[in-house]
Design a protein around this nucleic acid. Structure first.
Lengths: 369, 369
DNA sequence: TTGAAAGCGCTAACAG
DNA sequence: CTGTTAGCGCTTTCAA
């Protein structure tokens, strides 16, 4: 079951070439049975250095040698050991990424785009999900940093004190840190690629206020750990209050599918007396609420205006289309990838232009406002 | 900007203890400026061995020593280098996972559950998305294997020849391989945790046939690279034909949001003349089609029966609920995690029982059939 | 409970 | 274009 020793191929008489110190017999039971560069080198009749060069840039070795090495790689079934390479050379192709949740379509599309972009440049994704727990994030940062990643991407700028220290230290020791999903003009410590969630909140409020609605309801996610959602909520409320409108906040029921939660909120509001306009923490509850309102024959937007957030496909599917606001999550991921790649390469000319790092949320006005 | 040399803390006079060979001056520009176990050891007045032991099991060193090391770790801001550890010790905490897509909610929830389970046991997720391209998957397997992961999880059993070789070789060299999402009783080479997509197809057909429908339409995903979807489609058609029913297949328009694609198909069918029952490759197009049918005042299920696949939340949200069939994707991910963890630990008693590795798809009958 | 020696597999630097 | 040498930071084994 365990370590089947060296592959048979390279066992056939070491044939130590003259002048080379004989391979001392193995005193320690290490190794994992896979072929090493030494095995390949021996078979090809070259040194490990040449094999090493070949593996990284085949064109940098002679064509005859290259062919011999290629064969030897084939027969020994050699697979590069990146750990050893990293230890010796200091260059990693791993990019560590931390998101609150993989299952949420908000982050999964960003991660997908990020991963695609990175892969095109030979970078790999070491991924962790915090489940919105800062303590867990801190531990994950520590854990991922132990792999000496070539860059670290985290979501947002709210972290534990210790986590922030780790990020700062990482950056100081040459590991680029990119904060994604959030963008706060006042913060300069790390590169940020994202958008201003406060702006989203106030844009939502403005959109509704501009249409003359003075009795607003914000349906918040209700999870205080989701700081970005809270930010949107607060900005919405501020904007509404500043304009002298009436504004309330209710939370979505916890631990329930997002659309179903939106339905539930609408059910309650239908009994309690509807506001004039509702804004939601995401398109999913908004869509659920819309369907529920539709069932009760509420006239939208004449009787009740509704607006979601995120620009998810679902918003185009309910009724004649739900008004929403959002950013292109795939583009966001792609920008992150570009930024990471250029920072890893040390090519500042390819970095995302500072003006483009703050993505401007876009309003999609459809039939519900 | 680059490698700020050793941290100042450990720079204060090497104070080489007697009998130790003096540290030769650095001839090679290596290192990355972070503290090493040697730095910690020196500061704590012990050898690296003791630090190493402390890092892995603090209880295995004396309590006075432990305290000194703890302090030294703090002041040097030491972070373990897992690459070096892996190289020396041969044990990795990385689990490589390959899925067709991260953005698809099908896989993202499974990956989320898998990641959560793994993390509880100190294992980390190295993730790659193939975008349904087998060639890319092969390259990814090769690439991930180069990190000496402690296990490898792939999606389904359709791979390139070379990829299959790699998987076989990995398993032979002691890296457990788990195939997830698919389960084919005839295949025994790798542990499988998933379900039989052919069974899903025939169950869908049976469900509709049992309700007396003899004019069926299967709305397939239309991407031949999605082998599991194709399998469901074929099984559906076979089952329907075997029973003598009329059955047709149409494909969803390509490169379009899934719900919108479902709508589009329904639009066309409404013009062409509706079948008696429709089965969809997923709940999303089914939901879109349902909404479109609803708009045209089609009586469902009396005039047209509809059925989705996947048991996604959306299925509970359209109309009074869409009938569907699916498996618990979070449970699937959790089972994978359990299996991987036990295989990595070499604890076969904790492995998922073979009978539980094949997940039985469940039919959720709601209002559309 | 702690230490000494050896070496995991690879690559940087330099020489030829 | 290729080889030599040293060493990346850690853990193994064995000894005290």
């Amino acid at each position: 079951m365990e370590n089947p020793r060296k592959p048979s191929v390279s066992m056939s008489v070491p044939a130590t070439r003259a002048g080379q110190t004989a391979h001392p017999q193995r005193t320690y039971g290490r190794g994992h049975g896979r072929a090493t560069q030494a095995d390949v080198a021996e078979l090809a009749g070259v040194t490990t250095m040449t094999v090493s060069r070949f593996m990284r840039s085949p064109s940098h070795v002679g064509s005859v040698t290259a062919e011999k090495i290629r064969e030897a790689v084939e027969t020994t079934r050699y697979i590069l050991n990146k750990n050893a390479g990293l230890l010796a050379g200091g260059r990693s192709s791993i990019v560590a990424v931390i998101v609150p949740s993989i299952a949420s379509s908000a982050f999964s599309s960003t991660v997908q785009a990020l991963g695609d972009g990175l892969q095109r440049h030979g970078l790999e994704l070491l991924l962790a999900a915090t489940n919105y727990e800062l303590q867990r994030e801190e531990q994950q940062i520590r854990s991922l940093l132990a792999w000496s990643p070539s860059a670290l991407v985290v979501t947002g700028h709210k972290h534990t004190r210790a986590a922030n220290d780790l990020l700062r230290r990482a950056q100081a020791s040459g590991i680029p840190v990119v904060v994604m999903w959030d963008h706060d003009g006042a913060r300069k410590e790390f590169v940020q690629i994202g958008f201003d969630h406060s702006l989203v909140g106030s844009m939502m409020a403005s959109h509704l206020l501009d249409r003359g609605h003075r009795d607003l309801l914000y349906v918040s996610n209700g999870d205080p750990r989701d700081v970005r959602s809270e930010k949107r909520c607060q900005a919405f409320v501020c904007k509404a209050q500043d304009s002298g409108a009436k504004v309330r906040v209710v939370s979505l029921p916890y631990d329930m599918d997002a659309m179903a939660a939106g339905r539930e909120v609408m059910r309650v509001q239908l009994l309690d007396g509807l506001p004039r306009a509702m804004a939601f923490s995401s398109d999913f509850p908004a869509a659920g609420a819309f369907l529920q309102a539709q069932r009760s024959a509420i006239a939208v937007p004449d009787q009740l205006a509704m607006m979601g957030f995120g620009d998810y496909p679902i918003a185009t599917q309910v009724g004649a289309g739900l008004s929403t606001i959002g950013v292109d999550r795939l583009a966001l991921g792609a920008l992150c990838a570009q930024q990471v790649i250029s920072m890893v390469a040390g090519d500042s000319s390819r970095e995302v232009h500072p003006n483009d790092r703050q993505i401007v949320p876009k309003i999609f006005q459809r039939e519900t406002t």
